[in-house]
Each structure stands twice: as C-alpha cells, then as structure tokens.
Amino acid sequence: MNQFQYVRVTTPKAAVAAVTKENNSLFLAGGTNLIDLMKRNVMSPEKLVDINKLPLNTIEKTATGLRIGALAKNTAVAEHELVRKSFPLLSMALNAGASPQLRNMATVGGNMMQRTRCGYFYDTAMPCNKREPGSGCGAIGGYNRMHAIFGTESSDRSSKCIAVHPSDMCIALVALDATVLVSGSKGERRIPFIDFHRLPGDAPEKDNTLQKGELIMAVDLPNNPFADHSHYLKVRDRASYAFALVSVGAALNLKGNTIQEARLAMGGVSHKPWRLTEVEQFLRGKPATEATFRQAADVAMKGAKGYGENDFKLTMAPNTLIDALKTAAKNA
C-alpha cells in the first residue's frame, strides 16, 4: 500500500472540501472494500479522508418513510426494528451479504460505493477496462461465470465491461424506490437510487453518478405496503459468505391473491443493481400464481445475453425470480 495522507474530519462540509480539492483523494468509511483494493494495488489514493466520526449514522422515521444515515453500519440497519418491520427486504438483503464482521464495519454509503469483484479488475497483470480504461475486458472470452447478462451493450468495444455490482443491500434499495441524499461543494442533491449506479456504457471506470467530492449523506426509503410479502433470494456457490451468482429482491402488495403492486430487482446480473420495472408493470393486477410468475420471468429476461460461462444465468435468473416471487407471495 502506498503511503497516503490521512485526515480525520468531523463535519460533512470539511469532508467534502477535503476530497473536492485534491485529485486523488477518497472518503474512508468502513474500508471493507477500499482497504482491500489499496492492498491489491488496484486503487492508490494519495489522501484518505476518514469520515467515520461524522454524525451520519442515525436511522429515523421521517414524514414519508425512513431515513438511514450513510454511516449507519450494515448490521445496525439490518437489525433495526423499523427496518425489520417495515422494510424486511432490506434486512434480508443485508443479512445475505458478506459476513457478520464485515457487516459490522461496512456502512450504507460504503456498501453503495463497493466496486465489482471481477477477478480481472483485481489482478493488475490482466486487462480490465474498469481499472485501466482501454486495456480491454479480460472477462469477455475469459472467466465470466460471475458476470453480467444485462446492460452490457457498449458503443465502443474497447470500453466493454461485463462486471457486476456485488451488493445485496443495493438490490433491496433499488427495488424499494430509495433516494440518495448527497452533499457536494455546490450543496445537496437527491439522486433516485435507480440512477445512482450506472451501466458501463463507454466509461466502465465510473461505477456511479456521483460528482467529484460528493458525499453520500443518507438514503431515504418511502413508506411502502410490501412488508408482508417480501423475499430476498440469493443463489451462491457457498451457503454463506459468497457473492451472488444471481439474487432477487421481490416485494409484493397483495389484495387477496391479486397483485396490487410489485417491486423487483436482481443482483449478480448487471453492472448496476438491476431493477425490473417492466416486470413490475406486468404483474400489476395479475393473480399471484406460478403461471403469472413464469410469464413475468419471460418479461424479465428480455434482452439478456450470456458470455459463455455465465450462460447458466439465463436459466438461473428466471428460476430464481419465480422462486422469490412464490416465496414473497406466501410470506405474511
């Protein structure tokens, strides 16, 4: 790890100022991915601005829902009574991620800022457009078992990237219509969660739409009617402590057996948490039956594309979606 400048700040304003001013400076929160990346020489910031002392870890009810401070630890969110009761999908997704130790360290903001776990991104001896734009995508034609099946179209082949976003938490947040509150040198702004992460397009080095120096302050969740019918289903190579091959966050509002409203997102399939808006529309007003869910899966898989080793996801993803919907429909 390179020697870096370490600054501890106690106000968001100072944090934003410290990062905005310098080219290669980053916020340090839980560090569970950043320190890892620095150890592997994938990222070498010259300055780390430690934001852990900022007062941004509260979880509180708001007029329209719930506000979760960016520095709330993953464990604290997952176990918070309000989250468990009113946003169980988020609790389930968080508990499906990483390990208890990592969840004790990782923050909500940091979880959103996680970078891909693609092996080519981490091995500086191999090509990776995300790590080194223009160097090529090692995963295309290589080991792409973990990789994306959605949203990989790119205008320029040399900038191609089929990496996936690794977060579980973000699948729940994108499904539940969260908004991200960020603060920058020009003040605060709100970003719909669905627009926070981006597809690789022609700039796979950019994971999200944050501007230089912008600090995630909080995530807002609107109240929802899905608490009784939520399910997060994660398929992985190990029973625990493994990234998703495919995961599905499903939330339903049922009236009798009729779907009033649905919220759906998939993980392990795209460069960003993959919200299934079209499927949600399809499900509205339909009976919560396996037949409906199978049709929904067909809608969900439109445009999916395998890269060889990840072709199995073309089967696993719809299967997992159907299974998650079935379980969500049963929950109460």
């Binding site: 776990r117 001896a125 191999m126 090692g138 290589g142 080991y143 190579d237 190990r238 029973a239 625990s240």
Partner: peptide, 28 residues
C-alpha cells in the same frame, strides 16, 4: 465448492483468494 480457475490466455489464476476460491464455511 473448490476449484482454482486458470485463464489459459494468460496462464494466470482468476480466483486466487478466499472470497472466490470457496473453502466451505460453517453454513456448508
């Protein structure tokens, strides 16, 4: 669960760490 994977184009392993090379955990 266990398999170390080579990318033969480079002759390098692509999952040379304990997150990607899956030694069983307690839940397994």
């Amino acid at each position: 669960t266990e398999e170390a994977v080579l990318d033969h184009r480079f002759g390098r392993l692509v999952n040379n760490n304990l997150a990607d090379y899956h030694v069983p955990v307690s839940a397994d």
